[in-house]
Simulated scan of single mutants.
Amino acid sequence: QTLIRKPMKALNRTIRLVLPLLRNRYVIAILAFIIWIGFFDQNNLLERYELSQRIKELERQKIHYQQEINSNKQRMQELQSDPENLEKFAREQYLMKKPDEDIFVVIEE
């Protein structure tokens, strides 16, 4: 009996404290505003969080692609500056050959 009454007394005490607040129209208006902004508004908090996560992912991709662009520019500069590098690149990437050569493609696993 006493084990059941203690939680009930605490619940009754909480209800007695909260009930007058819920009758106050300003508190109701503030709660409605918070709920509206949190869930129903066009720019609600859930969508803002998802959009911020998407922005972070896109920024990571941007950094990756910028690094890739820089490495490709460096590679292009090397190819344009040295004809031997250009010939090596053409042979490796496009399997180009001289008329009297044979090509053997070795695929490493």
Rank of each mutant, 00 (worst) to 15 (best):
E78R: 12
S52A: 13
V106I: 07
R13S: 02
F89C: 03
G38P: 12
Q1V: 09
V18W: 00
Q53M: 07
R75G: 00
F40D: 08
N24P: 01
Q77H: 06
F89M: 05
E78S: 06
I35A: 05
W36L: 06
I15H: 01
L21D: 00
R60F: 06
D82A: 09
E50R: 09
I35P: 02
F40E: 11
G38W: 05
I63G: 08
L51N: 10
Q77R: 09
R75H: 01
Y65D: 06
R5F: 08
K56P: 03
N43A: 12
E108C: 09
R13H: 06
L21M: 02
A10T: 04
I35W: 06
R75I: 01
S52G: 02
Y49E: 07
N70I: 04
I28A: 14
K62I: 14
Q61R: 15
S81Y: 06
D82Q: 05
P99C: 02
L86W: 15
E101Q: 04
D82T: 11
N44K: 09
R13M: 01
H64W: 03
M96T: 15
K88I: 15
T2Q: 12
R75W: 02
E84T: 15
S52F: 05
E47M: 04
Q42I: 04
L3C: 07
L3A: 13
N72V: 06
A90R: 12
Q67F: 01
F40H: 13
N43H: 10
K73T: 05
P83K: 10
A90K: 05
F104H: 04
I30C: 08
K73C: 04
I107F: 14
I15V: 15
E87Q: 13
V106T: 07
L17W: 01
A29E: 15
Y49V: 07
S52H: 02
Y94L: 14
E109S: 12
D41C: 05
R5I: 14
N72E: 01
E87G: 08
H64A: 08
P7L: 10
K97Y: 11
L95A: 09
E108G: 11
N43S: 05
